[in-house]
Amino acid sequence: MFFRNLSTRSIIGFFCLLLAIISISSITVGPMKISAFDSINSLLLNGNNVAPHIDIVIHQIRLPRTFLCMLIGAILAICGTVTQGLFRNPLAEPGIIGVSAGAMLGAGFAIVTFTNLNLVSAQVTSLIALPMFAFMGGALTTWVVYRIGTSRFGTSVSIMLLAGIAITMLAGAGINSLSFFADDQQLRDISLWSMGSLAAADWPSIGLCTITLIFLLWYFLNNAESLNALLLGEAEASHLGIPVQKLKRYLILMTAFGVGISVSISGVIGFIGLVIPHLGRMMFGPDHRRLLPISAFLGALLLTLADMLSRIVVAPAELPVGIITALMGAPFFIYLLYKQKGRMT
């Protein structure tokens, strides 16, 4: 394919330009109409000749939301890329194998418990307790699914998918139980988390996501060659001197960490980690040294476009972005299942 012949630097440069254009477009979309000229003027020219209320909307609402869209999309995309590379199957995605549901349960537990007990302030809860419990929930469900799907003969993706469905149902029961005991505000928070929303974007959340994305990219890229070796099979990777089981454990933990941070901030946004890695491999090849940064850009683009669509479909109201990504991703997942028919064990 043509894209595979391009250098990684050229591709990243193109995506940076495209992301800048999409970002300006995202700032213009919403209940208040803002022109591209006003957006650029406010961002680059210190807001000269821009009305004060427009400048406030851009810098305090639209710009943080756009940044958060790009960061969350990039985190989910690289976590999905690693998950699919780890299990050597395009159907393996953090949301489908129960990671997102576990992270959601952990976040819901933190919302209800810490608020009811008045243990810490609301800001500390959102910045520390939510990410920590979301990570713990995602890591626990990942470990359970991995243990169920793994035997001395290897890892069965089909069993992991079935285990993921069961874990998702159990997590759903736990979330419903928490909702039963929650007050009105807690119930609203849990509801928004379950549907996925980027409306509460703020700069502390952006800072946390930025640190998370940089760390995950650094860690995953350092293990990109090991992921490439795993594509040949676990036995072959072991013969090349790669500690396969140790690598799996650490990569699964890092994936749960990334998904946990994302869920704690934006709620459950599904299918980004399923669609993006598949598109990236089709367009740019399976080499993770190249696929991981490209997936980050593609994830940022897709989630930003989905968020823009969520603000347009039922304007002036707003549709949760998780619904948009589900409508985009579910047909793609059905297509992948159709392709895998007859080959799943």
Rank of each mutant, 00 (worst) to 15 (best):
A171L: 05
T150R: 05
L44P: 03
K248T: 09
T325I: 10
T210P: 04
M132Y: 08
S42M: 13
F67H: 07
A296T: 03
G13M: 10
R65F: 06
I58G: 07
G241R: 09
L43T: 04
Y146F: 15
P316D: 06
T168A: 14
G241T: 07
I96V: 15
G85R: 04
A129P: 01
F333G: 00
Y335W: 15
R62F: 06
H59L: 12
F333Q: 00
M104I: 00
F37N: 06
W143S: 11
P293W: 14
L76H: 05
L221A: 06
L86W: 07
S194L: 10
P277G: 14
R281F: 01
A201I: 05
Q186P: 05
L127G: 05
R147G: 00
P64F: 04
I96C: 06
A74E: 08
F3Y: 14
C79T: 15
D55Y: 13
G241K: 12
A256E: 03
K246P: 02
D184Y: 06
S226F: 09
R147N: 09
P316G: 06
H53D: 09
Q185C: 00
A326H: 04
E236T: 12
H278L: 08
S295G: 12
G149M: 07
K33N: 15
W218C: 10
E318H: 11
F220M: 13
I54S: 03
